[in-house]
Design a protein around this nucleic acid. Sequence first.
RNA 1: GACCGGGUAGCUCAGCUGGUAGAGCAUCGGCCUUUUAAGCCGCGGGUCCUGGGUUCGAAUCCCAGCCCGGUCACCA
Length: 510
Amino acid sequence: MTDETAPSTSLKTLIADRRRKLQRAREEFEIDPFGQRTDGLVSLTDARASYDAAADAAFKEDAATDARPIVKVAGRVMQHRVMGNLIFMQVRDAEGDLQIAISKKAVDRPSFLIAKMVDLGDIIIAQGPLGTTKTGEISVWTTGEGSFELATKSLAPPPGKWHGLQDAEQRYRKRYVDMYANPRVIETFRQRSGIVAAVRQLMGDEGFLEVETPMLQPMAGGAAARPFGTHHNALDMPLYLRIAPELYLKRLLVGGMSKVFEINRNFRNEGIDRSHNPEFTMLEAYEAFGDLYSVMDLTEKVFQHVAQTVLGSTQLPYGDDEIDYGQFRRVKYLDLFEEHNGFAVTVSEAGAAGAEQLIANAKFLGLETEGKDHDVILNDVWEETVEEHLVQPTFVIDYPASLCPLTKRKPDEPHIAERFELFIAKMELANAYTELNDPDVQEANFRQQVAGMDEEEATFRAVDEDFLEALRVGMPPAGGLGIGIDRLVMLMTNSQSIRDVILFPLMRPQ
RNA sequence: GACCGGGUAGCUCAGCUGGUAGAGCAUCGGCCUUUUAAGCCGCGGGUCCUGGGUUCGAAUCCCAGCCCGGUCACCA
C-alpha cells in the first residue's frame, strides 16, 4: 500500500494498521471481516491426528493420486511468515497449534491476498489436505477456491509470540489474552472443570444429594469472617453475601435429607493473598449419623478420586514437593506440637501443663503473650512451628475445644473438640467437625459469641433464632465437611496462586 | 492495613554511581514457493505510572499518590 503516514509502532498506529486492513477486507475483497457460522470444522488436534503418512508419501511420489485427508480448521494466528508466493502461519485453538501453508498456486487470488494480509491475532479458517513440509511439519495445505478465510479480524496487537503475556497484572486483567497467549491457562481451567465434575461424581456415588442454598442471607452465619453487605430494594432490607452455607445445609438435615452437599461460592470480606480470593468456591457436605471420622474417610476418597481420575496419578508435584495422595497421615494436634517443639503441653481445661515453657517459646518466636489465654498462645505457637512442616496430606485431629466453640466435644475427653483440619503443601485444604446438635449448647455458644462482639461485628452478626429453632426440632448427629475447591485445584494443577485457578480474580479498577 | 520489590516501545526486558533512552521480537517498506522463537535487507516507533520537589539538567535522587507482586495482619 502506498501510505503517507510515517511508519510508527505506537499503540495507536498498530491499531490504525489493523483498521486499515479491516477496511481493505471490506472494500477490496468484499468480505465480512467478522465472519459467520461455519460448519464442518475440526479441532487442530483432531486435524493433526488425521494426518495419513502413507497417503502423503504416495502423493509426494505421484501428485495425481492424492488420497490425503482433507480438513477444515479454524484458529487464531500466532505466527505469520510470508515467503513470497508461499505463506506459513501457525494457528492455535483451545487444544493446540497447527501450521497452515498457503501456496499461491493452490488457491484463488483473493484467498492468497487475504492470507498475506492477515495479522497476528486474527482468527482464520483454512481448508485443504494434510501434508508435511520439507522439515516434516504437519500442515494444512490450503487448497481450492475460498479455502482460506478471515473469520475474525483482531483490532488489538497481541503480546509477543515468544514470551507471551508475562505481566501478572495484565494476565489477570486481560484473561482473554492470557488464555490464548499462554496455552497452560486453558489447560488449567479444563482441569478445574474436570476436578469439579469428579468431586460431584464421587459425592453422588457416595449417596450425597446436591443442593443449592441461599447466597443472599439476612444474617451472615456459619463462619467467623466479615461479610459483604448489599440491599434488596423491593423489600427494603439489608442482605449479606453468604460466608458459608452451613446453617442452611444443617436445616436440611433437620428436614430429613440424610446426606447433602453444595459446591458454590462463598464471599468473605477479608484480605487477599496467594491462597485467598474474596469469592471462592467451597464444597460443604453434611452426613446424618456420621461424625468427624466418617467425613475424614470421605475427604480422603475425594482427593484420591480427583487425583486418579483427572490427573491419572495419586502422586503429584506441587512446587518443589511431590505430594502422595495415597496416604493421609492422621495425627493429634498436641502430638504435632510436641513433635516440632520438643516438649509436651496440655490444653487449659486439662491443666495447661507445660505452660511456662510454652510462654518462653512464644516469646522466643516473637509472639505476643500478654493477656492471652493459654490455648490461644498454644495455637499461635502451633501455627508458627507446625504448619510449615505439613507438606504431605495430614489430618490434624483433637483440637483444643476452647478454640472451636461450635464443635461437639469428645465424650471421653471433653476438653478436646471433634474436629479435623486437613493440611497439604502447608495449606489448609479442609475443615470438618462432628456437628453440634444440642440446641441448648449451641444457643449458649451463640449467645456467648454475640456478647463478645465489637461494634462492627454487631452490624452483621446476630443469633440466628430460626436456626436454633431448627435444632430444637431435632438434627440428627452428623459429620460436616468443608473443602476449599480453589485450593484443591491449585494443588492438582500445581498452581502457586489462587488467582491462577480463578478465571477472573478480583482486581482494583485501573 | 503494615513492610519489601516492581511499573521504561505493542510484547519481553536493559539503562537507574544524574547529562533528556536502548535491544530482541512484533509493526511498517522492499525481496522471496518450504519457514517453524528468527527467511533476507532496511526504516521507524517512547506522557520512562501520575503529581510535586532538588538540580544548570531527572527514567535515574527526594516526597506524595495510583496500580501490581511478595511477606505479614485478618481469614478459609
